[in-house]
């Protein structure tokens, strides 16, 4: 369950799912939520915001830490998962269904630069927790 093979990953622990309509869905990985602990607050970007790759665009906050979420690729925010704001614990329950926002990529080539599941697994294992 912890690293689905159908997704792409960033080094900063975001997952990316290319959708049929050309947009991508972004969330944080199971590993990231494990490091942070119980989520207590999520701050999401505004719909319509133009993000650059690696730009800070959301915050995931637990009791003991607050982590910035970086946009894995450049693009415009087309939707955000607003119900998550009231139930941040959903990320702990299932990090891959609790998405944060959707992007319309402005440079699709960036997608190819992301990690696949195998490489991301290696990255997580090398972190030694």
């Amino acid at each position: 369950m912890s690293i689905p093979t159908n997704l792409k990953y960033s080094k900063s622990h975001e997952w990316v799912k290319p959708e049929a309509d050309g947009t991508v869905t972004v969330g944080i990985t199971h590993h990231a939520q494990e490091l942070l602990g119980d989520m207590v607050f999520i701050e999401l970007p505004e719909v319509g915001r133009e993000l650059k790759q690696k730009e800070e665009c959301a915050v995931a906050e637990s009791v003991k830490a607050a982590a910035d979420v970086y946009s894995p690729i450049s693009g415009e925010v087309t939707a955000v998962n607003s119900p998550l704001v009231d139930e941040p614990g959903k990320i702990n329950e299932d990090a891959y269904s609790a998405w944060l926002f959707k992007l319309k990529p402005s440079n699709a080539a960036e997608l190819d630069g992301l990690l696949d599941a195998a490489t991301y697994t290696e990255l997580v294992e090398n972190e030694g927790h």
């Binding site: 119980d38 207590v40 607050f41 009791v63 941040p88 614990g89």
Partner: peptide, 9 residues
């Protein structure tokens, strides 16, 4: 032990 997750949520 106090529930600080509840306190924050």
């Amino acid at each position: 032990k106090l529930d600080d997750v509840k306190a924050a949520r």
